[in-house]
Amino acid sequence: MFNLDLFYESVPILASAAIVTVELTVCSVILSLLFGTISVMLQLSKIPGGYWLSRTYVSIMRGTPLLVQLFVVFFGLPLLGIKGQAFLAAAVAIGLNSGAYTTEILRAAVQNVPEGQIEAARAMGMSTRQIWFRVILPQAFVVSLPALTSEFTIVLKSTPLASVVAVTELTYAGVVIQARAFSAVEIFLPIAVGYVLIALSFTQVSRWLERRFRLLHT
């Protein structure tokens, strides 16, 4: 029942598709951090309208399916003159989506930075921007590492959705082979294992990061 030949044949193809999955995850994570950082700064600094802009962004991203967001971005980018960029659309959509959750994670951490530290920085004459980048954010990121790690595991688990706009990542490759081979176990089993392995290596990297930073701080 388990066709070994098909298994051997498909593993190399799946492996190269897995690299696309990792690339998509990394790009989405970078965008998520970028959007999350901007959004949390908008929300908590006293820029007029910033609070509402950020809250609206978070609400929309959390209140609609990623699949729908993906289609909106995919069909929206051409309206901005960016055409035929499925990978970019997927990374932007997943990054925007995850950025909302990153906002929430960072907000909790930022609000935990003691007011006194910020006052000490102000008393020294630091500007708001300097206080954000030198005092608040470095601490917030370290404190949030565990929560961010699980958020980025979720990002990894959302990347299969990119297959709906034909990004040839792991799941898409699986569906294509499966459609040709008329057999599924040999393909979806390695795929499932593949995701678990990628997720595990992610967790290891972030554990290592966490240890490093925690050692640094104590």
């Binding site: 990894l156 990347t159 959705l161 297959s163 799941t171 599924a184 995701y195």
Partner: peptide
Amino acid sequence: GIPILVLLY
């Protein structure tokens, strides 16, 4: 560990 879409497939 696995994405919901993979489970669906």
